[in-house]
Each structure stands twice: as structure tokens, then as C-alpha cells.
């Protein structure tokens, strides 16, 4: 009996420790980023582009990367949404949502979700070579769009499933076509669409490997789709390797900015999805 009690308590302590490590790693990471990033944070960082070249220039900030990231993530999310909404509707409204084909499609998108961004980057690069596009904002947006489509489709799919079947049946029995019914459903899931957008944007803004070959890098803010664009994660990656202390500082500050942006997005989306799942129960 004593041995069993010791075993119980031993593993209970172990479990608490493991949980502290798992949950604590979050604080450790965010703490490290804040500790290093805050001293280098100033207004120039978010209002100026780097002076004298991003790798050695000591002046300026990372506005080029902030704007570039917004362009890439925003563009990819919009493009991704334009593709994903019809796909999610097709799976649920035109395929009945529960049959073998629909489930196979879901698995396919889950698998696409699991494909690493470096592979999307390499594939995006192949497409660009094929069509003769240079590394540019456009290239970055295309590669990141591929990356976010599975996220958008799966999130939208999960939201559409929560719409009561009665609502669909009601609108169909009034003589609506499936497309007209889909419009009703879309209106119903607006907060869900917003959650999907946030998730996709969060993933898009943080990813490096997909834009590494496709977006290029530039000290300037792109003014057309065919110019190369910097993104925040790339700015962090490149500037961290610089021997100049100020440039490294810019990397830390960029990391801080990116972390804050992503945290806000994550918190917002989880609050939203919580509200949405509350609606589901009712």
C-alpha cells in the first residue's frame, strides 16, 4: 500500500512538473523576446525604413518589413478566402458534407495543412520559374496563399458544420437554390469567417520558409506587385546574422513586434471562436 501511494505521489509531482515546463515554455519564450527586444524598441523602428542597408546600416527601423508583411499576409488571406469559401461551401452544401468524398476531401486538406512551408516555398519557386516571375511581392503572396488555403478551408468547414441543418432545410423548402441557401449560411457564419481570417493571417505573417525564395528582400516599401518585398520574419532572420550590434537590435525589436502582433491575433481568434462555439450550443 505504501509503495502504491509513493508511486501515485511521485507521478503526480512529475505530471505537475511536466505541465509547468510545457506551459512555462510560453513565458520563457515571450519573456526572452521582451527582455531582449524592449531596449531596442523606439518610434523609429516602426516609422522608418532601414538606413544604409539592412545588414550593416545602423540607422532607421523596419517599416519596410512591417508593411511588406501586411501586404503578403493580407494579400494571401484575401486570395485564400476567395478560393476557400467556395471550396468549403462545395464540400458542405453540394456534397452533403457527410459522405465518403467529403470526408476524403477533409483528410486531403488536413494533409495539405501538414505539408511544411519550405515545400510550399520550393513549389512556389517552381511556379515562378515556370511563369518567369522574379522574386517579388506577387511571388510571396502566391506561395503564402498555398500555405493558408488548407487552414481556411478546414476552419470554415468546421464552422459551416455548426449551422443547424434545419436552417438549410428551411431555406431549401422555400424554393431557394443551393447557392441561395449558401448565401444564407454564409451570413450566419460571419464571425466564423472572421476567426478563419485571423488564423490564416497569423500563420501567414509569421512564416519564413515560404517567402524565403519567393518574396525576395528589399530595404524599401514595395509600390507594385512585381517589386521584391521584405517581411518581418525575414527581417528578423537576416538581421540576427549581422555582426553590427544595432542591426541585431533591430532583429530583436522586430521579433518583439511580430510576437505582439501574433499574440493579439491568437487571443482575438480564440475569444471569437469561444463565442462562436457558445452560439453552437444554443
Amino acid at each position: 500500500m505504501i509503495r502504491r501511494k509513493i508511486e501515485e505521489n511521485f507521478f503526480r509531482v512529475l505530471m505537475v512538473l511536466a505541465t509547468v515546463i510545457v506551459a512555462g515554455s510560453f513565458f520563457l519564450i515571450v519573456g526572452t523576446i521582451f527582455y531582449k527586444g524592449v531596449p531596442f524598441m523606439n518610434l523609429d523602428m516602426i516609422t522608418k525604413i532601414p538606413g544604409g542597408g539592412f545588414y550593416i546600416g545602423k540607422e532607421g527601423g523596419v517599416l519596410n518589413a512591417i508593411v511588406g508583411s501586411l501586404y503578403v499576409a493580407g494579400g494571401a488571406t484575401i486570395l485564400g478566402l476567395a478560393i476557400s469559401i467556395p471550396v468549403a461551401i462545395f464540400i458542405n452544401m453540394y456534397l452533403d458534407g457527410k459522405n465518403f468524398i467529403a470526408n476524403s476531401l477533409r483528410i486531403a486538406f488536413d494533409v495539405l495543412f501538414g505539408i511544411p512551408s519550405i515545400v510550399y516555398g520550393a513549389f512556389g519557386f517552381l511556379i515562378m520559374v515556370y511563369f518567369g516571375i522574379k522574386a517579388s511581392l506577387l511571388g510571396g503572396i502566391v506561395a503564402v496563399t498555398l500555405l493558408v488555403i488548407p487552414i481556411l478551408v478546414r476552419t470554415l468547414d468546421e464552422v459551416i458544420i455548426t449551422v443547424p441543418k434545419e436552417l438549410r432545410d428551411a431555406s431549401l423548402s422555400l424554393g431557394a437554390t443551393r447557392w441561395e441557401m449558401s448565401k444564407v449560411v454564409l451570413r450566419q457564419i460571419r464571425p466564423g469567417i472572421f476567426t478563419a481570417v485571423l488564423l490564416s493571417f497569423g500563420r501567414a505573417i509569421g512564416d519564413v520558409a515560404s517567402v524565403l525564395f519567393t518574396a525576395g528582400f528589399s530595404d524599401n516599401i514595395p509600390t507594385s506587385l512585381h517589386q521584391p518585398a521584405a517581411t518581418l520574419p525575414l527581417a528578423i532572420f537576416f538581421q540576427l546574422g549581422s555582426p553590427v550590434e544595432e542591426v541585431q537590435g533591430r532583429a530583436y525589436a522586430s521579433a518583439l513586434i511580430l510576437t505582439i502582433v501574433v499574440l493579439i491575433i491568437t487571443v482575438l481568434s480564440s475569444l471569437l471562436s469561444k463565442r462562436f462555439s457558445k452560439n453552437k450550443i444554443q
Partner: peptide
């Protein structure tokens, strides 16, 4: 959940 939202490059910096 928050941990899952942190981008890879931030893990790299850390």
C-alpha cells in the same frame, strides 16, 4: 494555444 500561435522564427530567436 498561445504557444501554438508563435511563429517559427521567434522560436529560432529564442
Amino acid at each position: 494555444n498561445l504557444l501554438s500561435g508563435i511563429p517559427p522564427v521567434i522560436f529560432g530567436v529564442w
